[in-house]
């Protein structure tokens, strides 16, 4: 939280090297696991998150995805294996300690207040102030300008930061939450099923912003159960099933079809195989932008 703008400035440089360029991963987990008494919720998971890379965590409901992100977010402490931050072994005791090393989690409910203006939501809980003592007041102008410029850096073009955040679409709100985490010093973003509640088009918008965050040099942990959302933006894939890791792959090591069949045993998801392309068309700007970012 201390180096608020560090991610923004250093991001562009790292973005040029990425993907796969930086040597020490920001987060590395080795055979990590978590058991609650006799219940083994997760075991033997290894992967890494690098600056400027998207690590996708895939798995069906109950596969252990939420346990895994709670370990990374500091909400749970792991009981086996090791967690390395910048190459050093760490154990998180609270979400606060994860935040302090720059790991920010955007949960599904997004933590926004629908009736409040976008800029107030952006700075809620960390408001900028000016003046002293009883005259200490909100620095409204700076907050509005910062919100507009941070959002526009993420490619979100708002007509008016004064509009209630409830008037934005689900995808846009997700993006504001992402931009907020980035601004407040996140180096790694954990996104918990950001596309789960969204339609195809809105999902495309969120995927674009994930690609943008990666370009700015952030590490992203993208949790999803949809391989078609994961594959276009991901650099590294980890598949969980029944609390176990089915493997940790770089993008070059597997195709979308491999990913799909590994995840669900290739049954009902087959029919959705080209959902994105079919609905949005190969020539749609979102798909093209996504492809441009990927290659």
């Amino acid at each position: 939280m201390t180096d608020q703008h560090a991610s923004g400035t250093s991001g562009t440089q790292q973005g040029d090297i990425a993907p796969g360029g930086s040597s020490v991963p920001v987060i590395e987990v080795r055979d990590i696991g978590k058991s609650y008494g006799f219940v083994i919720a997760l075991t033997g998971v290894s992967t890494s998150v690098r600056a400027g890379e998207v690590t996708c965590v895939l798995g069906d409901n109950g596969a252990g995805k939420s346990t895994f992100i709670k370990i990374l977010a500091g909400a749970h402490t792991h009981t086996e294996g090791s967690l390395l931050i910048d190459g050093e072994e760490k154990t998180f005791s609270s979400p606060r300690s994860a935040l302090d090393v720059g790991i920010a989690t955007v949960f599904q409910d997004l933590a926004v207040v629908p009736l409040m203006p976008v800029w107030r939501n952006f700075f809620l809980g960390s408001e900028l102030t000016t003046g002293f003592g009883p005259l200490r007041r909100l620095d409204v102008d700076t907050m509005k300008t910062t919100t507009a410029s941070e959002l526009s850096a993420m490619g979100i073009d708002l007509r008016d930061v004064e509009q209630p955040i409830g008037t934005l679409s689900g995808g846009e709100r997700q993006c504001v939450a992402i931009a907020r985490a980035v601004y407040f010093g996140a180096r790694v973003l954990i996104l918990d099923e950001p596309t789960a509640a969204l339609g195809v088009k809105q999902s495309g918008v969120v995927l674009t912003y994930i690609a943008k965050a990666r370009k700015r040099g952030l590490g992203v942990v993208f949790i999803t159960h949809n391989p078609h959302h994961a594959y276009p933006v991901g650099d590294r894939f980890i598949i969980l099933r029944r609390g176990k890791s089915m493997g940790d792959f770089a993008k070059s090591e597997l195709s979308l079809d491999d990913l799909t069949s590994m995840m669900a045993g290739g049954t009902e998801l087959e029919s959705l195989a080209h959902e994105l392309e079919l609905t949005m068309g190969k020539l749609s700007p979102v798909v093209q932008e996504m492809q441009a970012d990927v290659t």
């Binding site: 207040v113 107030r120 700075f123």
Partner: peptide, 10 residues
Amino acid sequence: RTRAGNWIFA
């Protein structure tokens, strides 16, 4: 115009 006000709305 104050943080407290922001918190009240929130």
